Amino acid sequence: MKRFALIGAAGYIAPRHMRAIKDTGNELVCAYDINDSVGIIDSLSPHSEFFTEFERFYDYAWRLKRNPTKALDFVSVCSPNYLHHPHITAALRLGCDVICEKPLVPTTVLLDDLALTERETGKRLWNILQLRHHQAIIDLKDKVQSQKHTHKREVELTYITSRGNWYMESWKGDQRKSFGVATNIGVHFYDMLHFIFGKLQCNVVHHSSAYKAAGYLEYENARVRWFLSIDQNDLPETVKCKQSTYRSITVDGQEIEFSEGFTDLHTISYQAILDGKGYGIEDARHCVETVEVIRSSTPVTSQNGEGHPLLTNLIR
């Protein structure tokens, strides 16, 4: 049984980490968040210590370190994106391996710094790249690799996840903290595309705003038109008033069904990490590079059929 701490216990994704810790047969020893809406802990790990001040959390973890039988083995980081780097480095220096949500960090410079901290501490950092464990994605990767084509596959990625007015008032609506829509809700899709279609060769942005982004990516084995949005007005008419999220991936005009099978992916990811088969810094480098370029790019008009169809609905 491994002993875990959790940073960011009140966040949206934290319950999946708590469940993964429990379902892999491990113990959540302590948790931290500046917010105290963490009642979910009662049903998953009722005996965990909880702190709303990082200094008290860190002091508690440091005192545990003095006793080999009580020291923490892992720290899971689910805090806001802009805090990932300091929280990861603090956890590594506690002598713990770290499991962090995506995006790991916003830039490759910070990625290199984390690699240095790994070497200094002798501990490992693991990134949750859960779509790599989704069976439909694994099947598609196998299909692409086994069926060699003379042409690149034509891919269309659409992800619309409606968010209310609260979103822009939260840290997620602050681009200095979330790093924007493409990074916050899109980074795992860019990792998925790299995982399936190989090395990225071209990265062009056609639209970028606080609520949505679109562009064109060309990989070794695919040409990808992508569109990401948190605006409910972008939902297709067929799903409006029925569901708040719409995911679609088509490959050469054929829809890839992957709407199901998401709930257990964190537990699968944790088990792979515990087995020493998780994804580390270098696995995450490609998607960090991708979103870094997207954030720094000036949008251009789409050409040669590279624009996503929903671009026609946008007013620049």
Rank of each mutant, 00 (worst) to 15 (best):
M1Y: 12
K2W: 11
F4D: 01
A9S: 08
G11A: 06
I13W: 06
R16I: 06
G25S: 07
G25Q: 07
E27F: 11
L28Q: 01
Y32S: 03
I34M: 13
I40N: 14
I41G: 02
I41V: 13
I41Y: 02
S43E: 09
S45R: 04
S45H: 14
P46T: 10
H47F: 09
S48W: 05
T52S: 12
E53W: 10
F54I: 04
E55F: 02
F57L: 09
F57E: 08
R66P: 10
K70Y: 09
L72T: 04
D73I: 06
C78D: 07
L83P: 03
H84S: 04
T89D: 07
A90Q: 12
L92P: 03
R93N: 15
C100K: 14
E101H: 06
K102M: 09
K102R: 08
V105I: 05
T108S: 08
L110M: 15
A115I: 10
R119A: 15
R119V: 04
R119S: 15
G122E: 05
W126I: 08
W126T: 02
L129Q: 08
L131Y: 09
R132H: 11
A136V: 07
D139A: 12
L140H: 02
K141R: 05
V144E: 08
Q145W: 07
Q145F: 10
Q147W: 10
K148A: 15
K148M: 14
K148L: 13
E154W: 02
E154C: 06
V155M: 07
V155T: 04
L157I: 02
I160Q: 01
I160G: 01
S162R: 11
R163I: 06
Y167I: 10
E169F: 12
Q175P: 14
Q175K: 14
F179T: 00
I185Q: 00
G186A: 07
H188V: 15
F189L: 11
F195H: 14
I196C: 13
I196N: 13
F197N: 01
K199L: 12
Q201G: 12
C202W: 12
N203Y: 12
V205T: 00
A210D: 09
K212H: 07
K212F: 06
E218W: 02
N221W: 12
V224S: 00
W226Q: 00
S229Y: 02
Q232G: 09
N233R: 15
N233Q: 13
D234H: 00
L235Y: 03
E237S: 14
T238G: 11
S244R: 11
S244N: 13
R247E: 11
D252K: 03
E257M: 06
E257G: 04
F258Q: 01
F258R: 03
G261A: 08
D264E: 13
L265T: 01
L265H: 05
T267W: 13
T267G: 06
T267P: 13
G278L: 05
D283C: 06
D283G: 04
H286I: 10
E289V: 15
V291K: 01
V293S: 04
S296V: 01
T298I: 08
G307P: 02
H308E: 00
P309V: 05
L310C: 03
T312V: 01
L314I: 04
I315G: 05
I315A: 06
